[in-house]
Design a binder for these strands. Structure first.
Length: 419
RNA sequence: GCGGCUUUGGUGAAGUGGUUAACACACUGGAUUGUGGCUCCAGCAUGCAUGGGUUCGACCCCCAUAAGUCGCCCCA
């Protein structure tokens, strides 16, 4: 118990931290190229923010939040996603005053109380992007391109981009109604979950796997046939921009996002080999959210990707970077008398900007050489009685297996010029 | 939240109702006096997820709990 991390959490150990840094570096590169700036928001917020932002009735809010009362009696919640917080920060800090279009990205921990599985953690990490203040479909396309570009820059293959439009407040109600009318005669044939969904969110019935094969499903009205002129025009624009950019996608009229705030464009990127948790990225437009949270009506688009899932996909495709250690110099001290001079030399090497290590356990020379080899040291600097007397070190090139005695004043230059 | 499977040392793992729990890798030490990556030798689980129970006796049987994993659900 004491020696176990809480269920659904995981230590990121030194041997995998390199992979995380690698991915985060790609994120920062791409966001800079697309003009998105980093924002860091608190890990917890007032519970109410998520009720408002994500929506009551969603699974995330109803059954998956880490909510608790703090010592001041306030109800706070560990963020289950970052869009609500980003919008909150946007409004609170009046970022809309800086420019018409605010482009943000974030990287950080999110928390959801789910049953853990590979690719589904209770504490997990997302990278996400939000573009606030512009209704033009070019922004939808830009966001999707950014997501694809990110995944492609990592070398990932076999990704599938699905696209849909979920309409807006002026056309969705009509679609809901059309769906309900269509399903009403089949109500008894639907699965238990879908009977509940019928009233609350009939769109989700389309997404149901249990009912997917039933005959009447195929004939259900498609939202893309019910979009208002504005939404249809917008959707077509997004598609043509993506096509022009050479991005392949698949229209999926059944793609429905689980969070209430989505409007118009909805998309998802999947990597099928991940199994049940194959959605690597997902997002869309949320034109109503900012107003819902008390701001002026402001259009916005965003997406998020799960970093654990990205890392899993990288691992499956053998795309993780080499974790090989690299050390410039390993100081080998022989005998008691060499300890202090060796330590002094070690610090001089480090002071010169070199990566330098030594053993502190007073081990045999052989053992120290072994360590040097394991550390990936380019040079071993052997310091024994003779060398100390001569104010020199034995400099051994570990790759070439050659060595020569070098005076202490010259070692650093020797290493620097040869490494 | 639901159903299935799994759980042996630092790691990958073999194994049997009964006196010493294979093997490999890793690690530590050694094989000439001050030299790594190859080779050879030695050491390295009083313990088989945890807690109960059955039994003369359980790591191997039963129950519970926990964690992991697959699928559902959900989503990133």
């Amino acid at each position: 118990m004491l020696t176990n991390a809480p269920r659904g959490t995981k230590d990121i150990l030194p041997d995998s931290v390199g992979s995380w840094n690698y991915v985060e570096q790609k994120i920062r590169d791409i966001c800079a190229r697309f003009g998105y700036e980093e924002i860091r928001t608190p890990m917890f917020e007032h519970t109410e923010l998520f009720h408002r932002g994500i929506g009551e009735g969603t699974d995330v809010v109803d059954k998956e939040m880490y909510t608790f009362t703090d010592r001041g009696g306030r109800s706070v919640t560990l963020r289950p996603e970052n869009t609500a917080s980003a919008v909150r920060a946007y409004l609170q800090n009046k970022l809309y005053g800086d420019s018409a279009l605010t482009k943000l990205f974030y990287i950080g921990s999110m928390f959801r109380y789910d049953r853990p599985q590979a690719g589904r953690m209770r504490e997990f990490h997302q990278f996400g992007v939000e573009a606030l203040g512009e209704a033009n479909p070019a922004v939808d396309a830009e966001i999707i391109l950014l997501a694809m570009e990110f995944l492609k820059s990592l070398g990932l293959k076999d990704l599938k981009l699905s696209l849909n439009s979920v309409g807006c407040p002026s056309c969705r109600p009509a679609y809901r109604q059309a769906l309900q009318e269509y399903f009403r005669p089949h109500l008894e044939e639907l699965c238990g979950d879908c009977k509940d969904r019928f009233e609350r969110s009939p769109l989700r019935i389309l997404d149901c796997k249990a009912d997917a094969d039933k005959e009447f499903m195929a004939g259900a009205p498609k939202i893309t046939d019910c979009l208002c002129d504005e939404c249809r025009e917008h959707f077509e624009q997004v598609q043509s921009l993506l096509t022009e950019a050479g991005v392949e996608f698949e229209l999926d009229p059944r793609l429905v996002r689980g969070l209430d705030y989505y409007t118009k464009t909805a998309f998802e990127i999947k990597y099928a080999p991940l199994g049940a948790q194959s959605a690597v990225a997902g997002g869309g437009r949320y034109d109503g959210l900012i107003e819902e949270m008390g701001g002026n009506p402001t259009p916005a688009v965003g997406f998020a990707t799960g970093l654990e899932r990205v890392l899993l996909a990288l691992e499956k495709q053998g795309l993780l970077p080499d974790a090989r250690k690299q050390t410039d110099a390993f100081v080998v001290a022989l005998g008691e008398a060499a300890q202090k001079p060796a330590f002094r030399l070690l610090q001089q090497l480090r002071g010169a900007g070199l990566t330098a290590l030594m053993d502190y356990a007073g081990r045999s020379m052989k053992a120290q050489m072994k360590q040097a080899g394991k550390a990936g040291a380019r040079f071993a600097l052997i310091l024994g009685e003779d060398e100390i007397k001569e104010n020199a070190v034995m400099l051994k090139d570990m790759e070439k297996s050659q060595q020569q005695k070098v005076s202490l004043d010259e070692v650093i230059d020797q290493i620097t010029s040869n490494r």
